[in-house]
């Protein structure tokens, strides 16, 4: 088998309507992949920046995978949430990004979007918060059912990942 190390961090997020953000993240892989060590999902702290627009999390990611095939390369999915002064949590965006397949250090920007309801939903959301959420985020890993959604673009999440490949060249993989 070949081994893949993903070492890095979720640096922060920018471009959202308000700060005081936190992020739930997870890694999704195909059936041929097996996690040897590390946490495949987590949640950052709530960051309220004093100055500037960017919320910084510096959340570490350290994963060690082994695989029997190239199908189902790891995919990172992010949910950016906003916590207001009353402690209510509101969804601010979903983001999906493939883990890079070439070795080395990569600086990634993951754009996020959130689903949009009807104009009545938007009006009530403006006053009392909330809004539509995905019933199950797992359904759209492949992107096959995306066309049913009506979304609006939100901010950008910044990541830094370092990829180490082991034994892939032994099996003739050039990446």
């Amino acid at each position: 088998m070949a081994e893949l190390h993903i070492i890095g961090q979720i640096i922060g997020a920018t471009g959202f309507p308000q700060n005081s953000l936190f992020c739930k993240w997870g890694v999704h892989t195909g059936g041929a992949w097996r996690l040897l060590s590390g946490l495949r999902e987590g949640q950052t702290q709530v960051d309220m920046p004093q100055t500037g627009d960017m919320a910084y999390w510096s959340h570490p990611i350290d994963l060690h995978y082994t695989t029997k095939g190239l199908q189902g390369w790891p995919k990172l999915h992010l949910q950016v949430w906003h916590q207001d002064s009353f402690g209510r949590c509101q969804l601010y965006g979903y983001g999906y990004i493939h883990v890079p397949s070439s070795p080395g250090q990569h600086r990634l920007q993951c754009v996020t979007w959130r689903p949009l309801g009807s104009w009545q939903d938007q009006l009530s959301e403006m006053f009392v918060g909330g809004g539509p959420q995905l019933r199950s985020p797992d359904l759209i890993y492949s992107g096959a059912d995306r066309y049913r959604l009506h979304t609006v673009g939100m901010g950008t999440v910044e990541l830094e990942l370092c990829i180490i490949l082991r034994h892939f060249d032994r099996y003739g993989v050039e990446s």
Binding site: Y94, H98, V111, Y147, H150, T151, G153
Partner: peptide, 20 residues
Amino acid sequence: TQTCRTRSIEKEDVAFFSYP
């Protein structure tokens, strides 16, 4: 992809898809 409403980033309307 999904239908995405644009937002203004530096005088340009951008629609974010993040479609894998």
